[in-house]
Structures are given as C-alpha cells and as structure tokens.
Design a protein around this nucleic acid. Structure first.
Lengths: 183, 183
DNA sequence: CACGATACGGAACACCGTTCCGTTTAGCAA
DNA sequence: TTGCTAAACGGAACGGTGTTCCGTATCGTG
C-alpha cells in the first residue's frame, strides 16, 4: 500500500472540492479551471495533481448525489404503487439533479476523450439502477420491452440539456418520452 | 441600395461555402475556422468578413436542406394516411438530416451567444413546419394537445446529439418520444 | 492608366485546458 | 532543535481555440 498523503495535500483536496462545488453552482460545470483554482487559493497544477482530468473533479463533486439516485431505487420500487410509478418518480429525481446543476447534462454527453471518464462514471452507476426499474416495469407488463436502459438514460440526459434557454422546457418532453415507454 | 460586391468577394464567398460544406462533412460542424479558411485558400479574416459569426456560415451551408424539410410538410400531410403518419415521417426526415451532419445537433443547442443566430434560424424555419403537423394530428385526435412545437423540435434535436457515440442510439428514443405524443 | 474604395492575409490578442519545472514545505530521523 | 529528502506546490509555458487588427494588394472606375 502506498504511503499516506501529506496533510497539506489532503487539505488542498478538500478545499478544491469545496471550491469546485461553489464555482460549479455559480458559473456552471464548464467553469474555467483557473477559477476553481483561484477560489481554492491554489495553483492550477494542484487541481491536476489531485484530479487527473476535469472529469474526475466533476465526478468527485457530484458523486454523493449520483449515489443517492442509485440508492433511491429499492425504496421507490417498494413504495410505488406500481413499477411504472417508481420509474416515473426516479426519472423526476434524476432530472431534478441534472437541471439544477447547470451544464452537467451538457458535460455528460460530450463526445471528446476528456469527457469520456465523466460519461463512463454516470453510465456505470446509473445504468444498472435504471435497468432495475425498467425491467420491473416490463415484467409488470406496464412498459414495452426492447428499450435499453443506456438509451433511456442518455435520452433523458440529452432532453435535459438547455432547459430554460431559448424558451425550451425539458420537463414536458421528458414526460412525453416516459409516456412513450408504456406498453 | 448599397453598391454591388466586388467580383473577388463573391468568388471567395462561394469558395468558402464549398469549403465549409466539405470540411463540415469530414470533420463535423465544430471544425476549426482555420481549417475551413485554408481549405478555401483564404485567410481567416475573410470568413468573418462574409459570415460575421460561425453560426451564419453554418446557416448558409445548410439553408437548402432546412428549406427542404420545411417544404416537405404539405406533401407529407397530403400523402400520409393520417396526420400522425405524416408527423412520424417528417421527424424521420429531420433526424436523418441532423445525424448525418455530424455535430449539427450539438451546435443547435449551444447556449452561448455565438450559437444564438443558428438556434434562431432553425426555430424560425422549423417551428411553423412542425406546428402545422402537430396541429393537424391534434385536430385529428391522434395526438394529445398541449405539446409545443418548439419543445418537440428542440427535444428531437437534443435526442439526436451524440448518436452513435458510447453505444447510444438516438432513433429508438426519438421513436419513443413521438409515441408518447399519442392521445 | 491612375486612383480610391474594397477586400485580403496573416499576425496578434484573449481565453481555454494541460504540462513542466524551479521552489517550498511537511514529516521524520538524528 | 535541526537537517534532509521526498512530496507537493505555484505560476509560467505550451498548444489549441475563436476573433480582431492593420498594413498590403486588388478590383473597378473615371
């Protein structure tokens, strides 16, 4: 096992996470790296030392909320009158998360290598969660089979992009998409 | 009325349109400005002289195809067995257009000022076309009222983003969205 | 053919993510 | 306490964008 990190390194990592959370909330997830660095009172290199790529920083900032989404699934399936209701409520949860983090949906669907880590993390965590809900609804005969959780998740993410800009309202379209799943 | 443009200016404008069409097809709509300029054999400033912003260039390159989408509407409404069928086929047309122009959907939904012109042009041209189909389907009782053409159009554009990347397939989700419109 | 307005090309600027390198500092051992 | 070394740091530097500026070349006309 590698030696423990130095105290100042641990301190800076925490400062960076806090600063990134603030800056992301104020200026969006696409905020310049330099802004996060100066907010945390460190140099830019320190960011890259702790988070090899910008995606790793984003993942670290939002990890807790993603995990909440994943962990909400069993409860929803147990509480919801039907699996489809559980799916609908889970989608609401996910969309709330996406649209309140300005620019997160955009970052998730970036195609370049830099965003691949971010995309991979979201897929890894959320696809199984979404698949569980989808499978339950299909088994219950409420949703037509053949829809892949990956496509649904990505579709919801895509529909959330640009919510509120140019008069676009993502929610009705997401509701329509989910309605279209019905058997 | 302003004096006519010089011959070399007209020539360069055509060369730029041709070069941009080629480069956009090869490297996507987000290709560097310098690449278009060098392909056309002109300096970068010449691009900005003819097309004040990148969006103007993109609009100029795709204007014909957008117009084709708009002009297809009456024929589809006349031919289709039902208004809903016409809507489905029009969406197919639109999606074909979007996914074959790599990066166009991404560019359409950009939030910054630079893309505003591009977004405005698409909305201006396509919202009325989409609304005509939507209204006809609603009147025929095939589609539930209350869906705005703007939201539907933007939703389809968003769902088209990243088609084919990371295993995402946009078509099933667009089909699902359109299915969700049904009354 | 000469001249002025028009248009041009490429350097220059501002901003981005990322990397490099000389300097500082934490933690430990004497 | 002091000295040493590896870990960590900050900011300059690099490569890449979009956009603007300015001295130069060209077109079209009198």
């Amino acid at each position: 096992m590698p030696p423990a990190k130095r105290a100042d390194a641990r301190r800076n990592e925490q400062a960076l996470l806090a600063a990134a959370a603030t800056v992301f909330a104020e200026s969006g997830v696409a905020a310049p790296v330099r802004e996060v660095a100066s907010r945390a009172g460190v140099g830019v290199a320190t960011i890259y030392r702790h988070f090899p790529t910008r995606a790793d920083l984003v993942v670290a900032v939002f990890r807790h909320q993603v995990e909440e989404c994943v962990e909400a699934v069993p409860g929803l399936l147990a509480d919801g009158p039907t699996p489809y209701d559980a799916l609908v409520r889970w989608v609401d949860l996910f969309v709330d998360f996406l649209v309140t983090k300005h620019g997160l949906a955009e970052a998730m669907q970036g195609e370049d290598e830099a965003h691949a880590t971010l995309h991979a993390y979201f897929v890894e965590q959320l696809v199984p969660a979404c698949a569980a809900l989808l499978d339950a609804a299909v088994t219950a005969g409420q949703v037509a089979p053949g829809v892949r959780a990956l496509d649904l998740l990505r579709g919801i993410g895509n529909l959330s992009v640009g919510d509120g800009t140019f008069g676009y309202d993502a929610r009705p379209m997401i509701d329509t998409l989910v309605a279209g799943l019905r058997a």
